[in-house]
Write a protein that binds this DNA or RNA. Structure first.
Length: 289
DNA sequence: GCGGGTGTTCACGC
DNA sequence: CGCGTGAACACCCG
């Protein structure tokens, strides 16, 4: 699910729904999600009685700041979901398909239930259980690479960070979370299509104008995706269970064999790189100019 | 029954 | 140390 835009959509949903709420109870149904059996008691204890004072996001990480000196950190990985349901149980907008993962929580893939004092609930679902939650001291949050959508993002610093990896492809460099935070397979593919860059070109061979183009296109792409509520290409849903619609605006991702959206473009191709699928237009994104 | 999948980390070999 | 590959995590879907 979750690349930067999707996580931001979740963050915005949470800001609307849970700010100021007090945590009354925490039910950990699957200890792995909080780091194993030995972490359950501490996890629950550090949340109980606290209120949510702020919701932040950096890259794909969510930070729910608490009224204590701690922060609940969440990573949704591939299939994690946060679903908020009001006291009256209404407002859930998923459940339109017949699929297992599209029903109102709690269900078999609900691993953590956070109950608020007003009777509402926040559910952490994760089909594949790769996602995690943990509570850390707020002044000890993990250090992460720059996030293109935040105000302190610096294009020249971003370019330097990419260029630190001259021997890997631009595709891989952009997926590297130590280079830039938040990009995943969908948005790297989309970004390179927008910039007309062949995904497998090595960073060392990438013309300066192409790196500049990436630096300039990255933020508008992500903001556009956020505007449409993210891409529900797989299991992503907003906190009310509804889907994002940027999926309808994707140019190459999951469009193998379909015509390129540029009028002089070719047919979208798919190539395996390090075990994952890279989508691109062989006409627009040629190996060399 | 098999392969594929949005993310990250680790072991291994070069 | 850098880089690629494959595996691991776990489950549903086509």
């Amino acid at each position: 699910m979750p690349e930067l835009p999707e996580v931001e959509v979740v963050a915005r949903g949470l800001r609307e729904k849970i700010l100021g709420k007090f945590i009354k109870n925490v039910d950990v149904k699957h200890p792995k999600v909080v780091g194993g059996e030995s972490h359950v008691a501490g996890f629950v204890k550090s949340l109980n009685g606290a209120s949510i004072t702020k919701v932040e996001r950096h890259g794909k990480l969510l930070f729910l700041k608490l009224s204590t000196k701690h922060t609940l950190v969440v990573h949704l990985k591939l299939t994690g979901q946060l679903i908020f349901i009001d006291k009256d149980g209404k407002g859930y907008k998923g459940g339109h398909t017949q699929k297992v993962y599209d029903t109102a929580p709690p269900h078999k893939h609900t691993h953590i239930i956070i109950s608020f004092s007003d009777g509402s609930h926040l559910y952490f679902n994760d089909l594949r259980r790769f996602g995690w939650m943990k509570v850390v001291a707020t002044n000890d949050l993990p250090k992460v690479a720059p996030d293109p959508t935040l105000s302190d993002f610096d294009k020249s610093d971003f370019i330097k960070r990419v260029q630190k990896h001259p021997k890997i492809s631009v595709y891989k460099a952009l997926l590297d979370q130590t280079v830039v935070s938040g990009m995943g397979n969908i948005y790297v593919n989309e970004l390179l299509w927008r910039c007309k860059i062949y995904p497998l070109i090595l960073v060392s061979k990438l013309p300066r104008k192409n790196i500049d183009a990436i630096a300039n296109a990255i933020k508008p792409l992500l903001l556009e995706a956020i505007k449409y509520g993210g891409s529900s290409a797989n299991t992503f849903v907003k906190i009310d269970g509804s889907k994002g619609t940027f999926t309808d605006h994707l140019d190459v991702y999951h469009r193998e064999g379909k015509p390129c959206h540029r009028k002089d473009g070719g047919t979208v191709a798919r190539v395996k790189v390090g075990g994952r699928s890279t989508f691109f237009c062989p006409m627009c994104q040629k190996k060399a100019d």
